[in-house]
Design a protein around this nucleic acid. Structure first.
Lengths: 110, 110
DNA sequence: CTTTCAAGCCTAGACAGTCTTGGTAAAGAA
DNA sequence: TTCTTTACCAAGACTGTCTAGGCTTGAAAG
């Protein structure tokens, strides 16, 4: 009955989404699948986290969206990275590497 | 005026505190100092995060507390890791390593 | 001795991001 | 027709951190 820890680290989802969009536009669920796949199934993105994150990113101007049609012939909203989004991705990655370095220093200390 | 990202990764503070107590008991501010020092000043722990975290950990039975006197001759509450706390530390560390591996896989993907 | 400062503990409330749970619409299969 | 799957969306709960205060007390400064 142990409480499960979440599948994500709070605050990293934006970065992961931006990364998933690095090369191709993708639609919402496609982004979630992509993150799960790239992480070798370690990470899972719930829809209730995904969509709010997408709106955040769009509101910040880091991604843009337009309606299209998915591989399965369903209507789907495709998101694409903007150039500001690329900069943001780089910044978040830097921050992530810095902080995790700090944490690893603590964890590996005696 | 860029919004600063926090000094901590949400959800890691408990683990860091447990780690800081691994060898010696310490009092609250001493724990915060220890984390900052071990992380080479990358991480900072605000008091408003620290004390709630200590109560959480105590309530879970992962640490115990007793009043004592600090090096500066002030009264201070000293916290000590329990054996359940050690197990918890190991579990959280495993979880952390697993999730960060997932994130790194995504970030390093093409 | 009185004032100031720092150490140490503590709390309330705001806030942000994720999760749970629910829903809708439409394509294709049975 | 009904059912399943894909895809999007929203409301509210929850959790952990941060901001901004406040209290007490020992020591140092004047």
């Amino acid at each position: 009955m142990a409480k499960e820890k979440p599948d994500l680290v709070y605050g990293t989802l934006d970065m992961l989404i931006l990364k998933a969009l690095q090369h191709n536009p993708r639609h919402g669920l496609g982004i979630a699948d992509r993150i799960q796949q790239m992480s070798q199934d370690i990470l899972r993105v719930e829809q209730g986290s995904l969509y709010p994150a997408l709106y955040r990113l769009e509101a910040q101007g880091w991604i843009t969206a337009e309606w299209g049609v998915s591989d399965n012939n369903r209507k789907a909203r495709y998101y694409k990275l903007t150039s500001a989004g690329r900069k943001q991705l780089a910044a978040e990655k830097d921050h992530w590497l810095r902080i995790t370095k700090g944490i690893d220093l603590v964890l590996s200390g005696t």
